[in-house]
Design a protein around this nucleic acid. Structure first.
Lengths: 154, 154
DNA sequence: ATTGAATAATCCGAACTTCGTCATATCTGC
DNA sequence: GCAGATATGACGAAGTTCGGATTATTCAAT
């Protein structure tokens, strides 16, 4: 069931079809350009899930696999595989914890930590690139709008 | 090798660390909220690669697998698998073309076409949602900025 | 015409990923 | 203690990408 065509005449609160199309084209171009520039990054590319897992552990040291599974909405066994891979690469360690001997505390190794911050800096570099393409005076406005869109209640 | 910390003092053309962090957090929140709202879409979820393939064929009817492979930067055999899946679901047809009997012309079926436009409308709906969260007066500014970022030469 | 190289697409097998099922160890409440 | 819940890992099934080989066809040069 197609959406009704945007109404031009009203000038009410709805975005015009032209605005929608322009925004869509811009996003598409943007994603495309950065997807290509993305290639050629690290020693071994590292799975998307593994990256997410790594970053979660970086923010929640000594967490368990179940926490990550809940957070990412995936099966616990999938996280088990991911942590296996990360451990095999020497990026994290599994510690047995005192209070509950069923649980494992996941903690990043030195190298894992470095990888995590490198990953975050890569994300930041993307943001820096975007902001640098705007005039300094425009940046606050842009950030305010993106924030408004992201945190809008409804 | 970590990036140098953003310099606060200069006030030059570099974005501040605060701006970068705020923008990053907003994007993260945005992606997260829409990733969740994304679930529960269609009959059978359909692979990301398959979606890209479907949309490319929608824009370039009667193209060949090699075109798609070049465009998406993937192995030709991967596209073969993708078109297999799409054909098996009845979303596209392979036609033998007159001029070159090695080639196949990929064309969307009725249902594939519907699926493609539905997908595009889903993207549009996302753009509409974003724009509606801004005041009507702000929208042109936002679009102008995104366009500037996306098409910036450098 | 014929041969040989290049090209389009596909088939097959290897490696990897996600996830369901089962097994094991441990905790918690009675 | 004991029954049941919980955390984790082992194993296997299903699905995906991709490199290498294969088939069919076109093109170029003799």
């Amino acid at each position: 069931m197609p959406l009704p065509a945007a109404r031009y005449a009203t000038g009410m609160t709805k975005p015009t079809a032209d605005q929608i199309a322009t925004l869509g084209a811009a996003f598409q171009a943007f994603v495309r350009r950065f997807k290509l520039a993305d290639a050629g990054n690290f020693d071994k590319p590292l799975n998307e899930l593994d990256v997410q897992t790594l970053l979660y552990i970086a923010r929640h040291s000594d967490c368990g696999p179940t926490d990550i599974a809940r957070y990412l909405g995936l099966a616990a066994t999938t996280i088990s595989s991911a942590t296996d891979r990360l451990a095999k690469r020497g990026l994290l360690e599994r510690h047995r914890i005192e209070g509950d001997r069923r649980a494992v505390a996941l903690r990043l190794s030195e190298e894992g930590s470095a990888r995590a911050t490198a990953q975050l800096e890569a994300y930041n570099a993307l943001n820096v690139t975007m902001l640098e393409r705007l005039e300094p005076a425009e940046r606050e406005t842009f950030i305010r709008m993106v924030t408004k869109i992201a945190y809008h209640e409804d």
